[in-house]
Write a protein that binds this DNA or RNA. Structure first.
Lengths: 194, 194
DNA sequence: CGAAACGTTGACCGTTTTCAATTACAGTGG
DNA sequence: CCACTGTAATTGAAAACGGTCAACGTTTCG
């Protein structure tokens, strides 16, 4: 799972809000992981428009493509004060191209990301806030009855599933009221399972 | 880019609408690519609910995780009559675990998918239909001035970016009217570039 | 201790969805 | 070659849902 940390420890980088880890065109020097904070990846087009490509949060790895590229293809700007771990590509490349086991771990890690992202994208196709939230709970729940621990603020969940926090709280309240879920100390339990 | 076809040719599988490539729990036997049609990946929960995990379309590879799993974790059901290519995992595994170059190609292919998916997800955070469409055009455009070929029906684009086709056509009309884009034989050209 | 973030609910407004209807076009079989 | 079916492209009108703004209590953390 943690393919990259098996290869090397990496060095910690501190960024203040607005500071950059790299810019479009800079020669690649590392792959990153966010320890805390938030990093925004954006691409600037020829015409000056800025496109958001990703927002990396605590735990996320980014710029994995650096392994096989010469230069970065987007900007990485800290959104708030952030702490990153930078894994120099040098060593990474050597290990990946000499040790098939490491390369395979890397590949399978990326494959699992793909699965997660596809599911999140599919989730966004659900228009109704209530149903979307319900699907998110089902996707992230575990156990019987299915339940989700409240280990991240609902505000974050809201951003995750593409709702404003207000809409999320309303959906939560509606589902509770309808008896589809129950919220208790630190967990949300799915009811009405058949 | 086409890591998998460099390893083996795979055998073609024909599925009628409703037929399955595999079901949750089946022992893995292949990784797939859709040649034509559409395959829906779904997971059935203990409580009977069905979760959509992905919809694979022409050109998409799916079940890449089969490489390192014993059984499939979801159902793959053809949505319409479809043609798939099945790449037996046997040989795939051997090659991937013995040849670092192949494993690395696989990893980088997955990494590029991750990049694309992240960008598509980020796109969905744009609430306004007009702006979302504009961002999609910028993301998929090429050349100066930026332009996008009409190689897929707008109906599909609508599904891609999470709008109903009606909303998309309206956004398209609005942008045209406002002079932000121009639609001509087989291309959509972004104007107002600075 | 004070300032941020989080949690929650109300009211209103705007955009998108929905439903409906129409035109255009491509492929199919008689 | 033409009626016939299915998909794509478009536009209108009305309804619904989520966004936005506002306000307030609570928790967290430097």
């Amino acid at each position: 799972m943690d393919w990259i940390e098996e290869i090397e420890r990496g060095r910690t980088v501190h960024l203040e809000a607005g500071e950059t880890a790299f810019r479009q065109g800079n020669p690649v020097y590392a792959v990153f992981r966010v320890k805390s904070g938030r990093v925004r990846l954006t691409r600037t087009l020829e015409n000056g428009a800025t496109l958001a490509l990703h927002t990396a949060r605590a735990g996320d790895t980014f710029a994995e493509a650096a392994v096989s590229a010469d230069a970065y293809h987007c900007d990485a700007v800290a959104d708030v004060r952030s702490e990153l771990v930078a894994f120099p590509i040098q060593h990474l490349r050597e290990r990946l191209s000499s040790d098939p086991q490491t390369a395979l771990s890397f590949a399978m890690f990326m494959a699992s990301q793909v699965r997660t992202l596809r599911a999140r994208l599919e989730l966004r196709n659900i228009r109704s806030a209530k149903e979307r939230l319900l699907a998110w709970l089902e996707l992230n729940g575990a156990g019987v009855p299915l339940s989700v621990p409240t280990d991240q603020p609902w505000t974050e969940v809201a951003a995750d599933i593409g709702l404003t926090r207000e809409a999320l709280y309303r959906a939560l309240a509606d589902l509770s009221r309808a008896g589809a879920i129950r919220r208790e100390n630190g967990r949300t339990i799915l009811l009405r399972e058949q």
